Amino acid sequence: MSVRLIPYLVMNGNAAEAIEFYQKALNAQLLFSQSFDEMPENPEFPLPEEAKKRISHATMQVGETEVMLSDTFPGQPHQSGNQVTICISTDNPQNSREMFEELSNDGVVTMPLQETFFSPAYGSVTDKFGVNFQIYTKGQN
């Protein structure tokens, strides 16, 4: 079983600018970047124009550490101070479910753990201490 904790920065429409900044300031190497308009289309939820160029997900390497980041979707609340989450990356869906359930006890589920186009088990939760976690399971759907 593999488990990693990864800092995850949530930006308010300026993730592309942040990527460039961290590349220069921290010598970060961009490993992956995808905008919302590069994601698979969902006819039930058409993509608004103002969302298309925002970053849906990016991964950078800073030294020996990965840092992930994305933009909020237009209209989602964003407040300085809560834009950093911890992404728990696992390679086991059952382990992801167990951690998600434990973190959910007396916490608030912000996205139920579910299969997505990028993960067999992904969800987000704020634990009872106010810490924001994303649970990401590696693997193909």
Rank of each mutant, 00 (worst) to 15 (best):
S2N: 02
S2T: 02
V3T: 07
R4L: 04
L5H: 06
P7D: 07
P7I: 07
Y8L: 08
L9D: 03
L9C: 06
G13Y: 03
N14Q: 11
A15G: 07
E17R: 11
A18D: 04
I19T: 00
Q23L: 05
K24Y: 07
K24L: 07
A25L: 13
A25T: 09
L26A: 14
Q29T: 15
Q29C: 12
L30Y: 12
F32Y: 14
F32S: 09
S33V: 15
P40W: 06
P40D: 09
E41K: 14
N42E: 08
N42I: 04
N42F: 10
P43S: 11
P43D: 12
E44V: 07
E44Y: 10
F45D: 13
P48K: 15
E50T: 12
K52E: 11
K53A: 11
R54Y: 12
I55W: 02
S56T: 10
H57A: 09
A58W: 05
T59A: 14
T59C: 13
V62D: 04
G63T: 06
T65N: 15
E66G: 08
M68N: 06
M68T: 11
M68I: 03
S70E: 09
S70V: 07
D71E: 03
F73S: 09
F73C: 10
P77H: 15
G81D: 11
N82V: 01
N82L: 03
Q83G: 13
T85C: 05
I86A: 07
I86N: 00
I86C: 06
I86R: 02
C87L: 08
S89F: 03
S89N: 10
T90E: 04
D91W: 00
N92L: 05
P93R: 00
Q94R: 03
R97D: 02
M99C: 08
L103C: 00
S104M: 03
N105K: 15
D106C: 08
D106A: 14
D106I: 01
T110A: 02
M111R: 12
T116N: 12
A121N: 05
Y122G: 00
Y122T: 02
G123R: 01
V125S: 00
F129M: 13
G130M: 01
G130N: 10
F133M: 01
I135M: 03
I135N: 04
T137H: 02
